[in-house]
């Protein structure tokens, strides 16, 4: 189907159809060419990690996947990105509908200045996922359970989400994203603002989420990528340098640039 060498090799190891396929993606910020001809297939029910030095374009590419770049007026995206075979940059696609399907968790925990309950219920409410209050209660509880926050939060659902600790806040944001029942979860360096203990909790959570979603995580920590992901993509200066099984990337990278990064020479 695709004649690109990289994608072919990835597909070989994957029996399922890819969840996301990106072909020839270019991103420009004004005059800056931020993403240069990226081709990648992302599998379902898998954790895919994007690694690379800062400014390499990994976050930019992630934001293309749910069209968050639309909110930046100078950003321009070219190429073809499909989810389940549907072009998400098609004129008929409403980014709002797309983002319900592709949830996102951000670098800094950003709970809304509302109660914990209202934070989680926000997505279901705007998307009209519940018929009544008990429905909504159930969605909130499920989401908090899946984000491993239920036990800590069940007695303080009406308290503001901003009162939680950093790690709890980030799990709240994950619960908030999960509550809209997305199919894909994008995570933009979700642990960079957290302490090691909170990081460990979130990483454990990511591993569990893999059962239900296709998870794409951007991280600057190679150890984290090694711990949580099955697939790893290495970005450098806007290029996708290498993409493959996480174990393979970290033990026997093909590209010398990947090798230098992993061994700490670029970064």
């Amino acid at each position: 189907m695709y004649d690109m060498r990289l994608t072919e090799r990835v597909l070989d190891t994957e029996t399922d159809k890819p969840k996301i396929t990106a072909k020839g993606v270019q991103v420009y910020y004004g005059d800056t060419h931020a993403i240069k001809d990226v081709n990648v297939d992302i599998a379902d029910k898998t954790v895919t990690a994007f690694i690379g030095p800062s400014g390499c374009g990994k976050s930019t590419f992630l934001r293309c996947l749910n069209r968050m770049n639309d909110t930046i007026s100078i950003a321009r995206v070219e190429g073809d990105i499909r989810i389940d075979g549907e072009d998400i940059y098609d004129k008929r696609v409403d980014p709002v509908q797309l983002r319900a399907k592709v949830g996102m968790v951000f670098q800094k925990p950003n709970p809304f200045p509302k109660s914990i309950y209202d934070n989680v219920a926000y997505g279901p409410r705007i998307h009209g996922l519940s018929r009544n209050k008990s429905d909504l209660d159930e969605i909130v509880e499920n989401a908090l359970r899946r984000a491993a926050l239920w036990d800590e939060a069940k007695d303080r659902l009406s308290q503001p989400g901003t009162g939680l600790s950093g790690g709890q806040q980030q799990r709240l944001c994950i619960a908030r994203a999960v509550a809209t029942a997305p199919e894909i979860l994008l995570m933009d360096e979700p642990c960079s603002a957290l302490d090691p203990i909170a990081t460990a909790q979130v990483e454990e959570l990511i591993d569990e989420l893999r059962q239900s979603y296709s998870v794409v995580i951007v991280t600057h920590s190679m150890q984290q990528a090694a711990r949580v992901s099955q697939k790893t993509a290495f970005f450098h200066l806007g290029h996708l340098v290498e993409y493959g099984e996480t174990g393979k990337i970290f033990t026997s990278p093909e590209d010398p640039r990947t090798e230098s990064y992993i061994s700490g020479r670029i970064g």
């Binding site: 968050m68 909110t71 797309l98 983002r99 968790v105 809304f112 997505g123 705007i126």
Partner: peptide, 20 residues
Amino acid sequence: AMRDGSLGLGATKSETIRQV
């Protein structure tokens, strides 16, 4: 970050403004 959080959940701009 507030705006991004809301838009990332699939809220429209007006929902983001009114509710966040």
